[in-house]
Amino acid sequence: MTTYTSHSELLDTLQHYLEQTDFAHLTAVNQPDLAGLFSDLAGLKSEVKAESRQFKATLDTLSEALTTLQADNQAMAAQLSAVAERMLQQKRDVQRTLLLDIIDIYDRLAEGYRILQNYKPVDALFKHSKKQDVRFIKSFGQGQEITLKRFEQWLQRQRVYPIESAGKQFDAHTMRTLEIGHDATLENGVVLEELRKGFLFEDQVLRLAEVKVNKL
């Protein structure tokens, strides 16, 4: 077989293959359905818009609920604060009333102690028992003194402190004038005598001191 013959046979075989083979399936390309695609895209767009509107509505609802909750919390906090303030004030009022009653008892004990200190038995009436009477009065006075000191310690634990007024300049915020005196050796407005002791409860006046004030 010559070279020419071989080429001729190959060409014939190739031509026969090309004539017998159907190449339509190789060139046929499935074309997309553009109308359907656009329809699907439009539907998807509508769904996205609807979801977006629903999501925005949900956010708006949550925002309104949060604003309402914050306002309610602020109102509740204000109410609780007001209630706590009222309860504290009521407690202080009850304390003041109770402390004033206790201070009245303290005044009576202090006055009794003062009378005992100044008391002197009359020789003519108690001559036969003078020593016993003096010892009794002295012992009773010591007991009163101890009671008063404990009373004062209790008042201090309750944050109640006496107002120092004797020898001080008159202070209208803590004192009340009941009597007027005239002492040329002292300045005008100086407290000459404390007629009834005043007290402070924490930083507020519990009871005004009643005093005798010098006036030139």
Rank of each mutant, 00 (worst) to 15 (best):
Q158C: 14
Q20M: 10
L186S: 02
E47P: 03
D133N: 11
A124F: 04
R86W: 02
L80R: 10
A28F: 02
R114M: 04
K130H: 04
L41H: 08
S52T: 12
L14M: 06
A35V: 14
K56H: 06
T147C: 07
E202A: 03
L62N: 08
L100E: 09
L18S: 12
L26K: 01
N118G: 08
F55I: 14
Q70I: 06
Y17K: 13
A78R: 10
G167E: 03
A77F: 08
S139Q: 11
N118D: 14
V134R: 14
R92H: 04
R196Y: 04
L178I: 09
L69R: 08
L80E: 15
F23N: 05
F23C: 03
T21R: 08
T3Q: 04
A209P: 01
A28N: 03
L116H: 12
M175L: 03
L109C: 04
T13L: 10
P162I: 05
F55E: 15
Q70K: 13
Y119W: 06
L216G: 08
E64C: 09
L155P: 03
R150C: 09
M76A: 14
F55N: 14
T97N: 06
Q204M: 08
A24P: 00
S52L: 06
S6A: 10
Y161T: 15
E202P: 01
M87I: 13
Q74W: 04
F140E: 13
T177K: 07
E164I: 15
T3I: 06
Y106Q: 14
Q158N: 07
K91N: 12
W154P: 00
E187Y: 03
D22F: 07
T147Q: 10
Q117V: 01
L192Q: 01
D133A: 09
K138T: 05
V205R: 00
V191W: 01
L208T: 01
D133M: 12
T97R: 07
N73V: 11
S52N: 05
L100K: 07
L178F: 03
D101R: 02
S8Y: 01
T13M: 08
T13C: 06
E85G: 10
Q70L: 12
L200E: 08
S52E: 11
N188L: 05
L208W: 00
V205P: 00
L200P: 00
A71N: 09
E164F: 07
Q70N: 15
E164W: 03
A166V: 09
R176A: 12
Q117Y: 02
V29Y: 00
L69I: 08
T58W: 09
F140I: 00
Y119A: 05
I115Q: 14
L148D: 13
R92Y: 00
L116E: 13
L206C: 02
H173A: 15
A57S: 05
G143D: 08
I115S: 11
T13G: 04
K131T: 15
D183M: 02
L80Y: 09
E85I: 11
G143T: 02
T177V: 12
L195E: 06
R196L: 11
E19T: 15
S6P: 00
Y161C: 11
L116M: 13
